[in-house]
């Protein structure tokens, strides 16, 4: 009897303590990885005294979670790594509107046209290639060239990766369904090797396992930071203004239903502040988007990249379509 009472007591106690609400903290849904974001969050809490709880996940997964939760979402802030996920929450009318004091800090092209989310750092799509095997002059001028038999089995992709899918979504908006389907089928027919993530592709190119790959620009710099001068891989930027030249901002929005609007706004200001922008430039090798903070000198200047003209939030309308087309082509 005593044992049972004990068991019950422990049970109830455990459950009760775990039920404690989390209203006292700012809840952030972060589609950016813990490894990357945790140090920044620490700086934020140190600077402002605002306690933060972070739910990490895939950007699209967290966007879908917010859509599912609707107005009841526990999230106060959504920090995502691609504009499609931010666009989905915007199109569901779940973001509050930012004022000029936030929006004017970042070039218009990298934020939402209706001021529902703001770009924080820039990530360019590139071709990473093995300099010992490929002369950059022989690289095609757009991604369309990679369906050529010349590149059979030589260009890796990460078909489940959010950035790759955002790029496919951009291609659908720019070139249409048919052209995108054809390109994906062409890549599949060409035997493009598939990898689980961008960083694995960069490592594979550097190790000589595959000649080239479609990735984001900064993975190479992380590789160089870890491996030093022995790295033989290099980045090639498509600057033709097509989907291959996409620059995807990571961005942030504040949920409309938040009861911590002031703290949430402080977090957004913090991400746009010089220390945070420097963190992106120096630690993650992304493009800082706020004027006054310089990008890594090894990167071509942001205004030379010529990204396609798109309303970035619209990527959300074709993101699932992109997944379907990738699956249809047999790449998933």
């Amino acid at each position: 009897m005593i044992r049972r009472a004990l068991v019950t007591a422990v049970c109830v106690g455990l459950l009760a303590t775990a039920c404690g609400g989390s209203d006292a903290t700012l809840t952030i849904y972060s589609g950016r990885s813990e490894e990357l974001v945790a140090p920044l969050i620490e700086q934020f809490t140190e600077a402002t005294g605002i306690a933060v709880e972070v739910r990490y996940g895939d950007s699209a997964e967290l966007a879908a979670t917010i859509l599912e939760e609707g107005r009841n979402t526990p999230a106060d802030v959504f920090f995502a790594q691609d504009p499609a996920s931010l666009g989905a929450v915007k199109l569901a009318n779940l973001f509050a509107t930012f004022g000029d004091e936030i929006m004017t800090q970042v070039p218009e092209a990298f934020s939402d046209v209706d001021n529902r989310w703001v770009g924080v750092s820039g990530r360019a799509r590139v071709v990473v290639y093995d300099t010992t095997k490929i002369d950059p002059a022989t690289l095609p001028s757009t991604e369309d060239g990679f369906t050529d038999p010349e590149w059979a089995g030589r260009v890796a992709i990460a078909p489940t990766n959010g950035s790759f899918l955002a790029f496919v979504a951009a291609k659908i908006l720019l070139d249409g369904d048919d052209a995108t389907r054809e390109w994906l089928r062409g890549m599949a027919a060409n035997g493009a090797p598939t990898y689980p993530s961008n960083s694995v592709i960069v490592a594979a190119v550097d190790d000589g396992e595959v000649d080239a790959g479609l990735v984001n620009h900064y993975y190479l710099f992380r590789r160089i930071a870890e491996e030093g001068d022995s790295v033989v891989a290099a980045n090639h930027f498509f600057t033709g203004g097509g989907a291959g030249s996409l620059v995807m901002p990571a961005g942030v929005g504040v949920l409309d239903g938040t009861d911590r609007a002031a703290d949430a706004a402080q977090f957004v200001f913090f991400l746009l502040s010089a220390p945070a922008q420097r963190y992106f430039a120096e630690e993650t090798f992304e493009y800082p988007l706020v004027e006054g903070v310089e990008a890594n000198p090894d990167l071509p200047p942001l205004d030379s990249l010529n990204p396609p003209e798109l309303s970035l939030s619209d990527l959300a309308t074709v993101l699932d379509r992109a997944t379907d087309l990738v699956a249809e082509a047999g790449l998933l």
């Binding site: 996940g57 895939d58 699209a60 997964e61 966007a63 879908a64 859509l67 599912e68 996920s85 989905a88 489940t160 959010g162 899918l165 959300a316 993101l319 699932d320 997944t323 998933l332």
Partner: peptide, 17 residues
């Protein structure tokens, strides 16, 4: 790719669940 992996991939990668 068996059911479980695809279900999770769809859950994670798609906006429509």
């Amino acid at each position: 790719d068996v059911f479980t992996r695809v279900i999770y991939a769809q859950y994670q990668g798609r906006l429509d669940r």
